[in-house]
Amino acid sequence: MKALRYSYLLSVLSLLGMMILVIVWNGWLATEQSVPKSFEIAVFCIPLVLFLRGILNGKRAMHVALMVLAFFYFMAGISFVVTPVERAYGVAMTLLSLGMYLGGYYYAKNHDKLAQARLDAEEAKSE
């Protein structure tokens, strides 16, 4: 099913993109920071790393949980958008969090459709 594959790719690319964005921005591109770089990278990357294995393995529950996590990154992105120095970072974070949310939503939705179709096929086969 192509929709399942596309939503999976959206989730994976958004998750990896968010990790790369956080590391590159906070490691090299940020002009001024009020907290140490390593602390900010850890705070933003550790939750993403914890979800990475489940997302790469295509676990439906991890995609649903990623939707919840994406909400927090969306709020952080919006808070960065209002700061003129970090506006580009905030816009990128907001877009990637939307990608994580939509990818997780459509993956779960299409996964459920595929599972239901398999159950219907098994039921029709046994009758």
Rank of each mutant, 00 (worst) to 15 (best):
M1W: 01
K2H: 05
K2V: 04
A3L: 11
A3K: 05
L4G: 01
Y6G: 00
S7N: 00
L9Y: 09
L10C: 08
V12L: 07
L13M: 09
S14T: 04
L15D: 00
L16Q: 02
M18I: 01
L21P: 01
V24I: 13
W25T: 06
W25I: 05
N26L: 12
L29S: 07
E32N: 12
E32F: 12
Q33I: 14
Q33Y: 07
S34E: 14
K37L: 14
K37A: 15
K37V: 14
A42V: 09
A42Y: 08
A42W: 07
L50C: 15
F51I: 09
F51L: 15
F51V: 09
L52A: 12
L52W: 07
I55V: 15
N57F: 13
K59H: 11
H63A: 09
V64M: 12
V68K: 09
F71C: 07
M75Q: 11
M75D: 10
G77A: 03
S79P: 03
V82M: 13
P84A: 06
R87I: 14
R87K: 12
G90V: 06
V91N: 08
V91H: 03
T94P: 01
S97T: 05
S97A: 14
L98N: 03
G99S: 02
G99T: 02
G99K: 02
Y101L: 15
Y107R: 02
Y107M: 04
A108N: 04
K109C: 01
N110E: 11
H111L: 04
D112Y: 04
K113H: 03
L114A: 14
A117F: 05
L119E: 13
D120V: 04
E122C: 11
E123D: 12
A124R: 12
A124G: 01
S126A: 13
S126R: 13
